[in-house]
Amino acid sequence: MAKCYRDERAARHKPVLISKSAQGVEEGYRLVGPGGALTPIISHVQWLDNHPDGPDTHMMISFEDGTNVEFPFDVPLAVIWNDEQRAVNETDLLDVAPAVWRTPAERRC
Score class of each variant (00 low, 15 high):
A105P: 03
I41Y: 08
A99L: 15
D7Q: 10
L31V: 02
L48C: 00
S62W: 00
I61E: 03
E8P: 04
S43T: 13
E27S: 13
R102V: 13
Q46Y: 06
P55V: 04
S21E: 06
M59V: 10
R107E: 12
L48E: 02
P40A: 08
L38P: 07
A10K: 12
N82D: 14
I42L: 00
Q85R: 12
A11D: 11
D65K: 04
P104K: 00
T67M: 02
E64R: 00
H13R: 14
R30A: 07
H51Y: 02
K20S: 03
R86M: 13
A22N: 00
L94Y: 10
L31S: 01
D65M: 05
P104T: 05
F63I: 00
D74S: 14
T91P: 03
Y5D: 09
Q85D: 08
A99P: 07
V25S: 06
L31D: 04
D56P: 01
L38E: 08
V75I: 11
A99M: 14
Y5C: 12
V96I: 15
R102E: 14
R108T: 10
M1D: 11
D83Q: 04
S62I: 04
D74G: 05
S19T: 09
T103D: 00
G36Y: 09
R102I: 11
W47V: 13
A2R: 14
R86Q: 15
S43Q: 14
Q85F: 14
L38Q: 07
N50A: 05
Q23T: 06
D53W: 04
G24C: 11
V100M: 10
L48Y: 01
N89R: 09
I80F: 05
S21L: 10
D7V: 07
A87K: 14
P76Q: 08
L48R: 00
T39R: 01
R102H: 08
K14M: 14
G54H: 12
S62A: 11
V69M: 03
R108H: 07
F71K: 02
Y5L: 14
A22S: 15
L31N: 01
D7L: 13
T57N: 10
V16E: 14
D53M: 10
I41V: 15
V100G: 01
V45A: 07
I41S: 14
V32D: 08
P98I: 03
D83K: 03
D74N: 14
C109I: 07
L77N: 05
T91E: 15
R6A: 11
V75Q: 05
A78M: 01
D83M: 04
A105Y: 03
P40L: 01
N89Y: 10
I61Q: 01
H58T: 04
A105S: 11
L77E: 03
T91K: 05
R12P: 05
N82I: 06
H58I: 08
Y5P: 06
V79M: 09
A99C: 08
T91M: 08
R12T: 09
D7P: 05
P40W: 01
E70T: 02
M60F: 06
L31G: 01
N89D: 15
W81Y: 12
R6T: 11
G28C: 11
V100D: 11
P52E: 06
D95L: 15
T39A: 07
T39L: 00
L93I: 01
C109Y: 09
E27F: 02
Y5R: 09
V45S: 06
V16P: 07
